[in-house]
């Protein structure tokens, strides 16, 4: 149910992996934490796995999981740099997690702009002021608060707002 950033999960997994590899040879998955309470007995990502050989499946699954982590790491390297996190008492949010439409532009803008929130800043929908009006630009409903523009998007089941360059 709870949406957490992939970066956070990957980070946790990576740190746990380094710790494990460095200190003791325990199977990787014994310490991987997604920071998420499971709401189904069935794991995800098992749809394409051969069901004929149980023990073999377990090995394959393990590989699948590890590979997936590697993929996610790659994503993080490509799209997210300089992440920091803040905590509002209940939920964790990312600073500086660039929305993929605004990657490079966003970063350049962020370096130059010292006023207002940095482009790429993500806030939870509960932190959005109701006084920020909806403005449609090219059919997309942005929220504008003074000179700051937000682009709402679903991250999993949760709406987040990403600070973007003025879209017009």
């Amino acid at each position: 149910m709870k949406t957490r950033s992939l970066f956070f999960r990957v980070n946790t997994i990576a740190i746990a992996s380094i710790f494990l590899i460095a200190t003791c040879a325990i199977p990787l998955e014994a310490r991987t934490t997604e920071g998420r309470t499971r709401t189904s007995v069935h794991q995800k990502n098992r749809a394409n796995i051969n069901t004929r050989d149980v023990q073999r499946n377990r090995d394959i699954n393990r590989n699948t999981n590890v590979n997936r982590n590697v993929n996610v790491n790659k994503n993080v390297n490509v799209n997210v740099k300089g992440d920091r996190r803040y905590y509002d008492g209940r939920h964790y949010y990312d600073y500086n997690r660039h929305h993929h439409h605004h990657n490079d532009v966003g970063r350049a803008w962020a370096i130059g702009a010292l006023t207002g929130l940095m482009v790429g800043t993500i806030i939870a929908s509960s932190s959005m002021s109701p006084s920020c009006g909806t403005v449609y630009v090219n059919g997309y409903p942005y929220r504008q608060c003074g000179s700051t523009w937000y682009q709402p998007q679903y991250v999993g089941s949760q709406v987040n707002y990403v600070v973007v360059n003025p879209p017009r």
Partner: peptide, 13 residues
Amino acid sequence: HKIEFAVIDDPEE
């Protein structure tokens, strides 16, 4: 209002 999902994009993937 209609918005988009923030899919983690990886060109290779």
